[in-house]
Design a protein around this nucleic acid. Sequence first.
DNA 1: CGTTTAGTTCGGTAAAAACCGAACCAAATA
DNA 2: TATTTGGTTCGGTTTTTACCGAACTAAACG
Lengths: 170, 170
Amino acid sequence: MIKELEISNQKSKIIEEMGVYFECQDGMSPLSSRIFALLVLEGSKGATFEEIVEALEISKSSASTNLQLLQSMGRISYYTKPGDRKRYFKASVNSLINRLDDKIEAWKRERCLHERVASYRKNVITLTDLDKKEVEKDLSFNLQYIEFVDVMIQNLGKLKNNILQTVNQE
Amino acid sequence: MIKELEISNQKSKIIEEMGVYFECQDGMSPLSSRIFALLVLEGSKGATFEEIVEALEISKSSASTNLQLLQSMGRISYYTKPGDRKRYFKASVNSLINRLDDKIEAWKRERCLHERVASYRKNVITLTDLDKKEVEKDLSFNLQYIEFVDVMIQNLGKLKNNILQTVNQE
DNA sequence: CGTTTAGTTCGGTAAAAACCGAACCAAATA
DNA sequence: TATTTGGTTCGGTTTTTACCGAACTAAACG
């Protein structure tokens, strides 16, 4: 049927683009990205190991390795059906939340680093023969930046809670 | 002097940690990360090509390549002093804004991708023998996700404007 | 108990990324 | 005009990443 062909065509295009996106954005390996993209597309029914191997034309070993990786990152999970040995992998419901958590964690690290930069600046200011005005200006920019990061972290936290609510209320 | 040693020690630790951070977070090469970290630390006075090469113990060629890369990414810039051929490289004032822009751009791409996923789902729903209820549920989650991304983009936009204001009002 | 199914583990290879040295260039200086 | 300074470019090497095939395991089936 023509419609089916069209769909699978559309599918592989989306997988490819999503794949590249996650590769660049989240620093995952090409295969991990493609697998995750496929599972996002498949939705809650997920896909079996075999289906993944065939759809992406990859080796079983790569599939295995990358599926484990994705699980340890908290981005996918699997369920089983009674009387069926196969695993059905799917993008975990929390993959979104986990990603957000990762981002929040990253901003916190950034905050921490910039606090150290600020303290370094304070340290430098007492000692060097540099233009103190300049260093002080740098320092104040630094502190402003930290405030900004705080707002960022708060915002992300709020968003996370929003999502948690909408997910739970279902 | 002991204090100076202590400072340079502190400096190299911060550079290393910041370096790793940018490497993981923004996907830049190890050397680009270290250079950028150094320049963040140096503040508005910046550092010359030679200083960078010596401080990080890297080759001139690597320094050159990575400095060009960082410039093309909009993360650093340089100024010159009259009667001095050297370039003084520094983290560009806009590096923060540029990073934010990149993040906003990324979320927009993600939004776009998920719209395509949604349209794929609608397409599938009309055709397959799958459990329609499931697919519809997936679809609604999908649309919710897109809304979430919108909020994210808006938030980032607001933050960007805030920063632009505080920067300009100086 | 032999075979099939559903995956895992390990060793190796191919491709890509990161970095370097040497040769080079252009502007300033002697 | 020869030399020094401040970098750039290019070719090659090393390291890392990504992936695969073959051998293996554990559970289920016949």
